[in-house]
């Protein structure tokens, strides 16, 4: 493009061209200005929330529970789920399944603070046998996610059986409100994997919990919350009962082969563990946790969130 223009007297054509360009400039600036015009200014923090999560439970199997005893998790979970009708009762061929494990801490499996890899592997295998097209394993741990999944052995176990680990990246969360809840309002929830699947299975160890008394299958959903969720420890029982509203799972499996009796939820010593030799599977997390509380020597009176969760769900 020429940088310099030579004028010729009475160059009408050049003038008209310039005139047209100038006119386009005016119109263009006006059009851009007006089409992007924002008379009111921005809103404050967005209060919009994503759509409600689907209900993953199977109505015909509501309220079922079975208990297996022993030391071998793989065998016990087969027995327990078998007593409920087998994994095929829960999973259709072609289903995509999400396993919500407890991978909260970067701790070795032996101290019982996380879901046991042997159990994870077996459940993935059972899902595959039932025809699941895809099995995702996820959690939003307290420590660094990568280390948690690796050190807990869950990553290796899941990969070995052909499942995929979903690490909690920021963009998998969205602000979410549970209808009728008071705490989970516009709160970041790890919904992206939940929206990608047809079935959800919760997999939790039985653990003592310093604030709430116990951490079992309902408390396990805490790992779906994002943001600065430790603020909820101010009202721990309310938040746990709202978690029962957050997810309506297909199946929950509570592993009490070894229960963490005290110093929960992190434990750290083998002395904190007790061989309670029990594994509970069921479709009603409140019932499963109530049964699990016995392993910790606790009753529903010690765990107000169970009663609150029951009340919320029956409303």
């Amino acid at each position: 493009m020429p940088n310099e223009l030579q004028s010729q007297p009475f160059d009408r054509r050049a003038f008209l061209r310039r005139m047209t360009r100038g006119l386009f400039g005016v119109i263009g600036a006006g059009a851009i200005g007006f089409s992007f015009w924002d008379r009111k200014g921005p809103e404050g923090e967005s209060q919009s929330s994503a759509g409600v999560l689907p209900d993953f439970s199977i109505p015909s199997l509501a309220g079922r529970m079975s208990v297996a005893h022993g030391d071998h998790r793989g065998r016990m979970v087969r027995e327990a789920v078998g007593a409920l009708g087998g994994m095929a009762a829960f999973i259709r061929p072609g289903d995509r399944v999400l396993l919500k494990v407890n991978a909260a801490f970067a701790a070795p499996p032996a101290i019982g603070a996380t879901s046991h890899p042997e159990l994870v592997a077996q459940v993935v295998r059972m899902c595959r046998e039932a025809g699941a097209a895809k099995v995702l394993v996820t959690d939003n741990p307290i420590n660094d996610p990568g280390s948690c999944f690796t050190l807990s052995g869950i990553s290796a176990a899941a990969h070995a059986e052909g499942a995929e680990i979903v690490l909690p990246d920021q963009d998998l969360f969205e602000p979410y409100s549970i209808p009728g809840a008071t705490l989970i309002r516009h709160w970041p929830v790890l919904t992206a994997p939940l929206r990608r699947v047809d079935k959800v299975i919760g997999l939790a160890p039985v653990k003592d919990h310093h604030r709430s008394g116990a951490s079992m299958t309902i408390k396990n959903w805490y790992g779906l919350l994002g943001g600065r969720r430790n603020i909820f420890h101010q009202q721990i029982h309310t938040i746990i009962s709202e978690l029962a509203l957050l997810i309506k799972p297909t199946l929950v499996i509570l592993d009490g082969t070894l229960s963490m009796m005290h110093n929960g939820p992190t434990g750290g010593s083998f002395d904190d563990l007790k061989a309670t030799r029990t594994l509970i599977a069921g479709t009603d997390p409140v019932a499963v946790d109530t049964r699990g509380a016995e392993l910790l020597g606790k009753t529903i009176e010690d765990l107000p969130h169970l009663r609150m969760a029951g009340d919320l769900l029956s409303r």
Partner: peptide, 28 residues
């Protein structure tokens, strides 16, 4: 100011639309 706010927020806030007048006059 109008242009850079447009670039950074994809909006032209309220009175910043006056910038269009200046631009148009500059073209002329």
């Amino acid at each position: 100011i109008g242009l850079s706010v447009l670039l950074s927020t994809h909006t032209v806030y309220a009175g910043l639309i006056w910038g269009v007048v200046t631009v148009a006059l500059t073209f002329v």
